[in-house]
Design a protein around this nucleic acid. Structure first.
Lengths: 250, 250
DNA sequence: CTTAGGGGCTGATGTAGATCAGCTTGCCGT
DNA sequence: ACGGCAAGCTGATCTACATCAGCCCCTAAG
C-alpha cells in the first residue's frame, strides 16, 4: 500500500511525473515521496482546503479535481491567483510561512494527499534532490503568476482571456487532460472574472467575441480551440513557455 | 578574503542575514554561502544584468544599488514585475530554467555577486538547509508577486500606489535602508507606471492626490510618509505581511 | 407543479484611467 | 551659454471596462 496510490505506482503519479521532468529522482527519492503521499483526503465544493490567516496548515498534492487559490480583499472582492489541476502542489507557502497568506477552495470535488510541514522539511534534509525539485516546481508556479501579472498589467481583456486558455490548455496537456482540440473545463464565467480581474459581464462579452472571431469556444463546460494558430498569434503566446528542456540535475 | 565581503563578514551580509531569519545556518552553511559569494561584478545603468531568452545565465545577489525585473511584450510595452534592493536574489528562475523568462536591468549603478548555476546546485546538495532557505526566499518573493497581482487585478490606482510604497518601505526597513518616516527612492514616475500597470501621466496625478490628502509625498527622490496611519488604513495594508515569525528550521 | 437560486446573456449608462498634446524645469555635453 | 533631452506636470478628450438592471434557462428543493 505504501508505494501504491490508488491503482498506480508512485512513479506514475502526476506529481512524481512532474518532478521527474526536471530532476532525475532515484528509487530512494521516490520512496520518500510516496511516504509523503500516504494521507489521502477528500474535499467537497464549498469546504475550503486552506484559508488565509490560519496557522499550522498542511500542504496538499492534488490527485483529482480542480481547485482555486485566491485572496479576499477588505471590500469583499476577490482575486483568484491561480487554478490548481491534478499534480499541482497546493499551499506550499502556507507551510513555509507557518501562516497562510491565501485561500484554497475546491471547484469540483477534490482528492488530495495531505503533506505535513514536518514531513516535508524532513524529506528535504534527507533527500536534497527533492528540495531542489520542489524549488523548481515552486519557481515554475511563480513564472505562471508572473505571466498573470503581465496579463493584468498590460494586456487587454480579450488577449488576456486568450492567453489564459492557452496556458491552461498547455498545463492540462502535461497531465494528459487536454489535447490540441480542447479540454473539459469546470470553470464558471464568474470564476474566470475573478481570475482575470474582470467583471462577469465583461467575461461573457469577451467570450462571445473570441467565439465570433472563430478562435475559441467555451460553452457547456468545454473549451474548443476553433483556430489554434490564430489564437496563439492573437495572444502573443510563447508556445514553449512551460517547457524547460530536460532535467536540471541528471 | 574568503569570509569577507568588502569590509563585512558573511553573517552580516544582507543576503545571509535574510536567510538566517528563517533557517538557522551553521558555520559550515555560512562558509558555503561565502563561497558562492566570491565573484563581485559591477553593472551600470543601461547594461542589462539578465535578459529574456538568454540561456546559461548566472544568478546574482544584489549587494548595493537598485534593479528592476520586467517583461517586454510584443507591442513594446513593458511590465515591471518587481524591484530588487540590496540582499535580494536576482535571476533564480533563469538559472533553474536554464533560459531566462525575464529581463533584469539596473536602476542605479549596481554591485552584485555572481552565482553560477553549477555552484548553486552543488551547494544545494552539499547543504540541504541552504536549499530550504532559498526555497523559502523564493516563496517570499512569490508572495510579493501575488500581492502585486492582487493590486493590478482588484485595487484602484491610488490604493495600489499606497500599497506599493508601504511594501517597498517595509522591505527597505528589513535591510536598514528606511525608517518610519520614509526613505530615499531612485525610481522615476515612468518606472512606477510600468510597475503599477498605469500610464506615467496617471502616476503623476495619483502622487499629487496622495500628497494633497496628506498621506505620502514622493518628490526629488525621497519618499516621506506624511501620515503612516492614514496611509496603511487607506491601502488596507497588512503591516506584518513580510514578517514570518521566526526561523522555520531551528 | 411551483419556486427559488445560480449561471448565462444582453442593453444602457457611468467612470477610471489611457492617450494626446503641450509646457516647464533641470542637467549634461560641447 | 546653448541646444538637446529626460523627467515632471497639466488640461482636454477618448475608451475599455464596470455597474446597473433585467431577462432566460436549468436544476434542485419543497
Amino acid at each position: 500500500m505504501k508505494e501504491q496510490i490508488g491503482d498506480m505506482s508512485v512513479q506514475d503519479s502526476p506529481f512524481a511525473r512532474k518532478l521527474s521532468a526536471f530532476v532525475r529522482l532515484s528509487k530512494d527519492d521516490l520512496l520518500v515521496i510516496s511516504d509523503l503521499y500516504r494521507r489521502r483526503r477528500d474535499f467537497d465544493v464549498g469546504s475550503d482546503m486552506i484559508h488565509q490567516g490560519q496557522t499550522n496548515q498542511s500542504a496538499y498534492v492534488l490527485a483529482s479535481g480542480w481547485a482555486s487559490s485566491y485572496k479576499i480583499l477588505i471590500d469583499g472582492t476577490r482575486q483568484i491567483v491561480d487554478f490548481q489541476i491534478p499534480g499541482d502542489f497546493i499551499g506550499l507557502r502556507s507551510v513555509l510561512f507557518r501562516t497562510s497568506d491565501h485561500n484554497v477552495e475546491p471547484i469540483t470535488p477534490v482528492q488530495a494527499s495531505e503533506v505535513h510541514q514536518r514531513d516535508l522539511l524532513d524529506a528535504f534534509t534527507r533527500t536534497p534532490r527533492l528540495a531542489t525539485a520542489v524549488l523548481w516546481a515552486a519557481s515554475r508556479d511563480e513564472a505562471m503568476v508572473v505571466e498573470h501579472l503581465v496579463d493584468l498589467g498590460r494586456r487587454s481583456a480579450s488577449v488576456r482571456m486568450a492567453h489564459f486558455f492557452l496556458e491552461l490548455g498547455a498545463r492540462l496537456r502535461l497531465v494528459g487532460m487536454a489535447n490540441q482540440t480542447g479540454f473539459d473545463c469546470p470553470l464558471s464565467q464568474s470564476l474566470l472574472a475573478d481570475a482575470l480581474g474582470l467583471s462577469a459581464v465583461h467575461v461573457n462579452r469577451v467570450l462571445r467575441e473570441l467565439r465570433e472571431a472563430g478562435m475559441l469556444t467555451f460553452q457547456k463546460g468545454k473549451v474548443v480551440y476553433d483556430n489554434y494558430e490564430a489564437l496563439t498569434e492573437f495572444a502573443g503566446f510563447d508556445r514553449n513557455y512551460l517547457d524547460h528542456n530536460g532535467p536540471l540535475l541528471p
